[in-house]
Amino acid sequence: MSEETEATRSGEETGGGGAGRRSDGQLRRALSALRHDPLALTGTAVLALLVVVGVAGPWLAPSGINEVNIDRMLEAPSWSHPFGTDELGRDVLSRVMVAARVSLQVGLVSVGIALVVGVTFGLFAGYYRGWLDNVLMRCMDVLFAFPVLLLAVAIVAVLGPGLLTAMIAIGVVYTPIFARVTRAGVLSVREQVFVRAAVSIGASDLRIIVRHVLPNIAAPLIVQTSLSLAFAILSEAALSFLGLGVQPPEPAWGRMLYDGRGFVTEAWWLGVFPGAAIFLTVLAFNLVGDALRDVLDPRQLTVSESRRSSG
């Protein structure tokens, strides 16, 4: 975040909603703003690192994630094991690195689900209004009535723990946010001159939605996606910490905390490093998301902290 306050910013920018292709300039502006925002730059750098580790983790990791060595269990950090070893003598650094992939995967897939479903719902609801709007949005209200983690836990409980169900559960939980953000955007775009013009020359609904509406609501969606990634990763970590996410021997940060909990008093590194990895990842997504929001979504259509689940 820059020195400017959010309030003054929104003052500057609420006016600029008219032009047909708003998003190009906006994106450019967003990128340049990111370049000049040290926090956002840091966040981006962390994310880039994360992606590299997520993709190439197994090759970069100093040792195999399932290299059990009982004689070296619970060793403190050292040159050969910078993050120490766990209760099976496995290298914690390697496991933290490889687990990055799981976190990213869960984040991307679940937010992907939420994005596709939520945006579709939001578009239909906002564009067609009427009973469809009512039905769809009441459904979203229903999902919204459950605390995030509670609903996710309930879904996982029913479908059975695992990577796939965790992704589905988190995806479902974050769908209503996207539906609401999209609908709000559509409602404001719908009445604008260029959309009315398109309607009057007989353009098809699909064409109008794809060519005119979507590009104009892209900005809040981008912001929402970035922020949701942070919460999705946090949710996955929480599920895994409850033993309901990724199952062993696959490493996941939350699961590592869960497995290491019995030993943290004698092996602090089992508690510190996986937790720090979650924190940094979420922080990075939040920093980038906040910076994007300051530029792209001055009206704050996006929903963020208030939906962050505690516990």
Partner: peptide, 16 residues
């Protein structure tokens, strides 16, 4: 089974 965590732990050693 996760019901008996020692089986999960032991399985990882057995696998290696």
């Amino acid at each position: 089974t996760s019901e008996y965590p020692e089986t999960v732990t032991a399985a990882q050693v057995i696998a290696s």
